Computed example of a mutant assay.
Amino acid sequence: MSNADKCILSSHCSQAGGPNCNNLCSSWIAVHGFNGAGGRIAAANVPKEYAGVTLQNSPAREDQAEAYKLIDAYVNTFKRQFSDAEERIKSLYLYSESPGTGKTTSASAVLHEYIVRHYIGSLQRDRQPLERCAYFLDVNAWQTLFLGFNRSHVPAETAEAHAAEYYAMESRAKVTPLVVLDDIGVRTATDAFRADLHGVVNYRVANGLPTVYTSNVAIGDLAQVFDARLADRVRDMCVVIPFVGGSKRGIRRSAQKSRVNTSLKISE
């Protein structure tokens, strides 16, 4: 049974849809795991509802056509990851005042594109692809974990488990080459949590690591979320892409299975 309709590599692969397109494919295993629930995709922590979303099949592409022109151009800069001499990859700030306009869907597609280009580009250069080259951090879910070990009367075992996962997520979000910080516009947070979020952002900015932010807060108003100094650092080397219209929640990937192109060879 072919994995072409589930594999994010399929539009780059001459074997997609053929007899070798199955669970034994080494690239399928490397990216998706043998059973489709592991590999580099699992390490990236993308929510299940955005599994398999690519720039080609994204349900937000039609409604956000202008945004996708910029995103398409942006992902072409991912080749810079292989050269220290190149200008660093910029960050993205996906913004709309209204929720549900496709920002998280699009950020997930960008993350998957980074995995594809990192995996293929590494093999072409005889390098070992990183096990985790991209990571998705849901800031609200991360904050929930924080509350899970900082409230009173939390059982010790529960608090310990939440704390361990919280700090593991913090570490991954700091050092992974490309990270999505989904919904950074947290307005009601303790100073301690806000300091941790600031620490992640500051580390990435200081080390030139590209970050894809999604937010309902305009970048000019980030001082409401971060202090002014850090808000300025986020704006540095960051491309703002506005998303238009109202909520499209509930519209998912109806066109996803149409993305297979078996004529293409693996390329950047």
Rank of each mutant, 00 (worst) to 15 (best):
T54D: 03
T54E: 11
L55R: 11
L55S: 09
L55A: 07
Q56C: 05
S58E: 09
S58I: 11
S58G: 08
P59V: 02
P59L: 01
P59F: 06
A60T: 08
A60D: 07
R61L: 06
R61W: 08
E62T: 08
E62Q: 07
D63G: 11
D63F: 11
D63L: 10
D63K: 11
Q64H: 02
A65W: 09
E66I: 04
A67I: 00
A67M: 01
A67H: 08
A67W: 04
Y68C: 02
Y68A: 03
K69G: 13
L70H: 12
I71S: 07
I71H: 10
I71V: 15
I71C: 09
I71K: 05
I71W: 14
D72L: 01
A73I: 05
A73G: 07
A73N: 10
Y74Q: 04
Y74E: 00
V75Q: 02
V75L: 00
V75E: 00
N76V: 00
N76P: 00
N76W: 01
N76C: 01
T77C: 05
T77P: 07
T77W: 07
T77K: 10
F78A: 00
F78V: 03
F78K: 01
K79I: 11
K79T: 11
R80I: 04
R80L: 08
R80E: 14
Q81F: 15
Q81K: 15
F82G: 01
F82Q: 02
A85D: 14
E86P: 06
E86S: 15
E87I: 06
E87C: 07
R88I: 09
I89A: 05
I89S: 05
S91K: 03
S91I: 04
S91T: 02
S91E: 03
L92Q: 04
L94M: 07
L94I: 03
Y95V: 06
Y95C: 02
Y95Q: 09
S96I: 05
S96W: 02
S96L: 00
S96R: 00
E97G: 14
E97C: 11
E97Y: 15
E97M: 12
S98Q: 15
S98T: 15
S98K: 15
P99Y: 06
G100K: 10
G100N: 11
G100M: 08
G100F: 03
T101S: 08
T101K: 09
G102Y: 12
G102V: 09
K103Q: 06
T104I: 07
T105S: 11
S106R: 02
S106T: 13
S108F: 03
S108C: 10
S108T: 08
S108V: 04
A109H: 11
V110P: 07
H112T: 04
E113F: 00
E113H: 02
I115N: 06
I115K: 10
V116W: 06
R117N: 12
R117G: 09
R117I: 03
R117V: 05
H118P: 04
Y119C: 07
G121Y: 00
G121M: 01
S122V: 00
S122G: 01
